[in-house]
């Protein structure tokens, strides 16, 4: 488990309760969530249901409601909550030196490189 982090933005770039997007060449866009409680999470920006951009949903607690059909997705696990079934991949993330860092290896794996 070698740490291989890439810094994507400052922590102030995303208002609490909102999400930011990070396009990736050759792979799915990543959504970075900043909850009103102050936590950060990164998920592939695609609802497991119909691929809706989760970054545009309403963030509440540690979950987000997809803007297309209101599926509720856990920001911790990427799992659909409630009656719905499905999972969105999560990307390991850390906060250090005021920056948001994503796990390079996880992104590479998604890029199928």
């Amino acid at each position: 488990m070698s740490a291989d982090w890439v810094s994507v933005c400052g922590v102030d770039a995303i208002e609490p309760g909102m999400a930011g997007t990070v396009p990736v060449d050759g792979a799915d866009e990543i959504a970075i969530f900043h909850t009103s409680g102050g936590a950060f999470y990164a998920l592939v920006n695609k609802c497991p249901h119909k691929g809706g951009p989760l970054s545009q949903g309403i963030v509440h607690g540690d979950s987000v409601s997809c803007p297309l059909h209101n599926w509720r997705i856990s920001l911790l696990s990427g799992q659909a909550l409630g009656e719905d079934k499905g999972c969105t991949p999560t990307i390991p993330l850390k906060i250090e030196a005021g920056q948001v860092w994503l796990d390079r290896a996880a992104i590479l794996a998604r890029a199928g490189a």
Binding site: V6, V8, C9, A13, I14, E15, M18, G20, T21, V22, P23, V24, D25, G26, I30, I32, V100, L102, I107, A111, A113
Partner: peptide, 11 residues
Amino acid sequence: DLHSHVGRITA
């Protein structure tokens, strides 16, 4: 901020 990406990852 609502209309832009916070970052971009290029190969």
